[in-house]
């Protein structure tokens, strides 16, 4: 099976992210970056499929030069080769713009499966994988926790809301958006990193892919949310406190 995994580099979860002076993006200069979490699960699923059924796993990632470190990490974990779509304006493209780049890079590969993570930790758009499928004309399914190969295609476990699941069968080629948590992730190893040095990373540019398009939605400003999280102590008699809590849970936190 030939599997392509679309991965994204995002700021580290713990990074002290600040808004840039223009208020339109975050300050990237002092940030550290890491592989997006659900993309890591997509990669893991791909690697496990390869280990079971043979074939090849290639990763594709769009972004500036720094993305190279995340690509190497994916190669270190076991991907066979990579395509790096070099572009410095990733965050000013909308989801369609990014998906066009990815689709243009993936199309000539003619993969059996295109995997992506469910959503990115920075922008959280959660649609790039689906749009790529649409652009490539592939059947797709999202929120996938597990992929099994069948005679005719794949059978996937899809997460529904509130603890329900569903199996879905798809013919190949197909595209899947992988939900976090379906597999145990493997950690990167020194041996993997050393072996990755010899693996192929093809560099493409947005211009070469001819996939430029004007954005249809634009992110104008980013700002800190007005309300920061802090502890609310509920006072009064146990009865009053209990009533106040219930009210808060229902109407403020909306978890009941």
């Amino acid at each position: 099976m030939k599997i392509i995994v679309a991965i994204k580099q995002v700021p580290e979860r713990d990074a002290p992210v600040r808004i840039d002076p223009a208020g339109t993006w975050i300050e990237e200069s002092s940030l550290q970056f890491a592989l997006n979490e659900s993309d890591a699960y997509a990669l893991e699923e791909a690697l496990q499929l390869k280990e079971k059924h043979g074939g090849e796993v290639a990763v594709v990632s769009a972004g500036p030069e720094r993305v190279g470190s995340t690509i190497r990490e994916a190669l270190a974990k076991g991907a066979d080769r990579a395509v790096h779509i070099l572009c410095d304006d990733l965050h000013s493209r909308d989801a369609l713009g990014v998906a066009r780049l990815l689709a243009a890079a993936i199309k000539p590969e003619q993969p059996d499966l295109v995997l992506s993570g469910l959503q990115s930790e920075d922008l959280g758009l959660g649609q790039t994988g689906v749009i790529v499928a649409e652009l490539l004309g592939l059947p797709h399914a999202t929120l996938i926790l597990n992929v099994e190969k069948t005679e005719t295609g794949v059978k996937v476990k899809r997460e529904l809301e509130e603890g329900w699941f569903q199996s879905v069968e798809l013919p190949l080629p197909a595209a899947l958006s992988i939900q976090s948590g379906g597999n145990k992730l493997r950690y990167a190893t020194l041996m993997g990193i050393k072996r990755a040095k010899t693996k192929e990373v093809r560099i493409l540019t947005a211009a070469e892919l001819g996939a430029d398009s004007a954005p249809v939605v634009r992110m104008e400003r980013i700002a800190l949310p007005t309300k920061q999280k802090s502890t609310q102590m509920l006072d009064g008699s146990p009865k009053e406190a209990a009533a106040a809590l219930l009210e808060k849970l229902k109407f403020e936190a909306r978890v009941l």
Partner: peptide, 30 residues
Amino acid sequence: AVNTGAWDDEHGAKLFLALERGSNALGLGA
């Protein structure tokens, strides 16, 4: 064992992955 990936341990992997992802060893946020 670890540098070659031969060690497979749930908690160990969790620790490594948290640190790979730029978190601290406890997995708590900055």
